[in-house]
């Protein structure tokens, strides 16, 4: 069934990581990605992956969830690795015809794979431990300065919230409409490309109509509750920075400093 797809992969919990301010979590995730990319040596990777492992342990996210989030990037990793291995010049260690493999190529391929994996695992940790609503809330706060250049920050955040809210609803709706049309003998599984595209019409039209209907109903319900944009709007849940946010920032800063120092003083190990 379509509804098995999980979007917005929030994994509820009450751990240290879960309770961090979402704004801090977003910023720290960005810093973590920066760390991954400025790092040049083996020790830096040991440090950054160790940090990630510790964070996952604290958050209590099961290992299969991490594997699940890494699965979609495997093709990308294979692709970049192949490019790196075969097309980076340097000390040749193996040659066959025009195909050469260099030491630098292998090194870069391995480093790049680790970077991509750690990047995905790191940013997944953000979405695992932060509810979509908290996330859009934090994005709205972080983008607030853009208001001064007339960027519609609040509207954007509201759109994201609504979109996230309606993804499961629309998936369920799609499932229902598909069943209903199948019950009338719609054939969705056989035929060529054009026939299949045509077979989608009985599903897409009711789906669009219901999406528009829902949008109208929602707009009306929001207006009934006096929604009139972000101006002067207050929040039920105020975001507050606390002691644990300071701890998290400290740890990440130490990690960043450590990687920079390693780059400076241990540049040529491997």
């Amino acid at each position: 069934m379509i509804t098995d797809i999980t979007i917005g992969q929030y994994f509820p919990g009450k751990s240290f990581i879960h309770r961090l301010d979402p704004r801090i979590k977003i910023i720290l995730t960005i810093v973590y990605i920066v760390i991954l990319f400025i790092n040049q040596g083996v020790f830096g990777f040991v440090l950054s992956i160790g940090l990630l492992a510790v964070m996952y342990l604290i958050a209590g996210i099961p290992i299969r969830m991490i594997l699940k989030s890494l699965k979609p990037v495997i093709p990308l990793i294979i692709f970049t690795s192949v490019l790196n291995i075969f097309f980076i010049g340097g000390t040749v260690i193996w040659q066959w015809g025009i195909i050469t493999i260099s030491w630098e190529g292998i090194r870069l391929a391995v480093f790049m794979s680790i970077r991509i994996l750690a990047l995905i695992a790191g940013s997944s940790l953000l979405t695992y431990t932060t509810s979509p609503i908290a996330l859009t809330d934090a994005i709205e706060r972080l983008l607030k300065p853009l208001k001064y250049v007339k960027f519609p920050v609040h509207e954007l955040a509201m759109m994201m919230t609504i979109a996230l809210r309606f993804i499961p609803t629309l998936l369920e709706e799609t499932d229902k409409i598909m069943s209903a049309q199948k019950a009338r003998g719609a054939d969705l599984e056989s035929g060529g490309l054009i026939r299949r595209a045509k077979a989608l019409i009985p599903i897409l039209i009711p789906l669009f109509i219901s999406a528009i209907r829902r949008a109208e109903e929602l707009a009306l319900a929001m207006e009934c509750r006096c929604y009139r944009g972000g101006e002067g709007r207050t929040r039920m849940k105020q975001l507050h920075l606390g002691g644990r946010d300071a701890v998290a920032v400290g740890v990440m800063a130490a990690c960043l400093a450590g990687v920079i120092l390693m780059n400076l003083f241990l540049p040529t190990v491997l």
Partner: peptide, 26 residues
Amino acid sequence: GLVFQYPEYQLFEETVYKDISFGPKN
């Protein structure tokens, strides 16, 4: 034949005639 709950949300054709004929056509 199965008529789902709120079956009116499955209608999609331009005319009532065409919509009713969807099943028999299939």
